[in-house]
Amino acid sequence: MNSKQVSELFGISIDTLRYYEKSAIIPPVTRNTNGYRDYQTRDLNWIYLVKTLRKAGMTMESLQEFLRLSQAREADEQHVADQQKQILIDQLEEVDEKLREIQTARDLLAYKIETYDDHIAKFKSNTFSDADIEKLWELNKK
């Protein structure tokens, strides 16, 4: 598959594909006899992984380390595998935390939408008092 096809498949620019390779966050891409990049399934998997992990907030440095470890030919292969797995575990924990934060924000938005008309009606009728003011930061504790 050529660069244009890969670019269209993943919705990223050809420049981004080259940047991924130049920055060593994907392995070098195989070249055909004319010297053009010829992306194989392995390359496509790396690109998809990198694109997805970047969306999940993984840093370029972590991606570079992940690739470096995948290419390492150290005597202790289990140690290398454990290091790679730990990078993924750390990122999953970070994503889980972000999801909790987003869920909290979503719950607050849903609450504000659900109670909006009632709050506005009380405000317009001058029946809104200090006792009606919620402690928004405590809503998720309920």
Rank of each mutant, 00 (worst) to 15 (best):
T16K: 05
L88D: 06
K141C: 05
A72W: 06
L69A: 02
R106K: 11
N34R: 09
A81Q: 10
V95F: 02
R42N: 14
T115M: 10
K22D: 14
N45T: 10
I12Y: 01
Q78C: 04
Q84H: 05
A56C: 07
Y48K: 04
D96E: 15
I87C: 05
D43H: 10
Q78E: 15
I14C: 12
I12S: 02
E74A: 13
T33N: 14
L109F: 10
I25L: 01
D90Q: 12
D107A: 09
E74Y: 01
N45G: 14
E138A: 13
Q71H: 06
V29W: 00
R106N: 11
E8Y: 01
F123W: 13
S129P: 02
K124F: 04
E61P: 01
L63A: 01
E138D: 15
Q40T: 14
R100N: 14
R73P: 02
R100H: 13
W46H: 05
E8G: 03
E101C: 09
P28G: 07
L88P: 01
E8A: 08
N45Q: 11
T52N: 11
M1N: 03
L136P: 00
Q84M: 15
E77W: 07
S7K: 04
I14V: 14
M1F: 08
R42P: 02
V95S: 04
L108T: 11
L99C: 13
G11A: 04
I102L: 09
L108I: 12
K22Q: 15
R106Q: 14
K142D: 05
A105H: 08
Q84R: 15
E8K: 13
T104V: 07
K135L: 15
I12V: 15
L69V: 09
Y48R: 09
W46V: 05
I25F: 00
F10R: 02
I113D: 07
L136V: 14
K124S: 09
Q86M: 08
L63K: 00
I87W: 04
R68V: 02
Q64S: 12
L69P: 02
H79T: 12
E74T: 10
K85N: 07
K55R: 07
L136R: 03
G11K: 05
V29S: 01
D118R: 03
G57Q: 03
L92V: 06
E8D: 14
V6L: 04
K112G: 03
A121N: 13
P28I: 06
E61A: 13
I26A: 01
I133M: 01
D90Y: 03
A24C: 15
N126L: 12
I120E: 13
E114W: 06
H79M: 10
R37Y: 06
I26G: 00
K55N: 08
F128E: 01
S7E: 08
R54L: 15
D132R: 00
Q71P: 05
L9G: 03
T127H: 07
M1K: 03
L17D: 00
T30P: 07
D130S: 12
K141T: 04
D43I: 04
